[in-house]
Amino acid sequence: MRNSSLLALLRSDRVAFVAAIWLMLVVGIALVGPEVVGKAATGLDLRARNAPPFDFSRGWVHWLGSDALGRGILARIFLAARTTLGIAVASVLLSMVIGGTLGIIAGLSRGSLGKVIMRGTDVIMSFPSLLMALIVLYVLGGAPANLVVVLAITRLPVYVRTARAEVLEIRERAFINAARVMGAGQVHLALRHIAPLVLPTLFIIGSLDFAYVMLAESALSFLGMGVQPPSITWGLMVAEGRSYLNSAWWLSFWPGLFIMLTALSANLLASWFRIAGDPTLRAAQGNTGHA
């Protein structure tokens, strides 16, 4: 895969390009945002209590309005970006690594180990993930680290199943047999041949899952079972603003919009990458029209 041509392809698709820019912006906010806004995100400012948005006479952190304690919404969003994205990225990486490894093992194992792994994923799959997370988080408490682990576990099956299905297909290809004839062992096959072929698929799933996990975290925080104050995520901001819905709609609206736009960008980019990264699919997309 040549990166320069991929970049050119990205430029040619306007929608995907905008999505990529938004994601980079949000990641930038998560990286440096909290330091940029500094005390503006936590300090009280009673003169700005529930100030409406688009009042440009105040500082820029108040442009999207202010909350009941007079803190600028934009500042709060910047502060929450790090926690929100951090949790999502960490749990995606965690489930991708563990799920991918388990899936490759399950695909290569012809014995009971593979079966145990698959039954385990069945158990996780057979119950609504949000309910499972609710219960576990209530037991363990809503610390960000717990949230990461719980979300990662609920998303494990996707990676395990995908990786296993890919391995089962790759395992039948002739180059695997050719390597085995040369005396290659399971570890050589897994690392040299199988992992490099499975990884791109896992990354695509990961980018789709990033959106999913972020939405799940927001929902949990919204229900009060996720991150607890004074930590803050976008989902928690929506929940906190809910009681002011009649008087100050902006408290809930803006953080929710940030969730939506970020999830949307991740989904758009993932579906674009699925086509752009796979030349056969790219051709197939153009080839199915009927005269």
Partner: peptide, 21 residues
């Protein structure tokens, strides 16, 4: 495609709140 991806990316609790609003 755009609309379906957008609707699959929407946080339901937020949509509910906006709808009430």
């Amino acid at each position: 495609s755009m609309l379906t991806i957008a609707s699959a990316s929407a946080p339901d609790f937020w949509v509910a709140i906006v709808a009430i609003l």
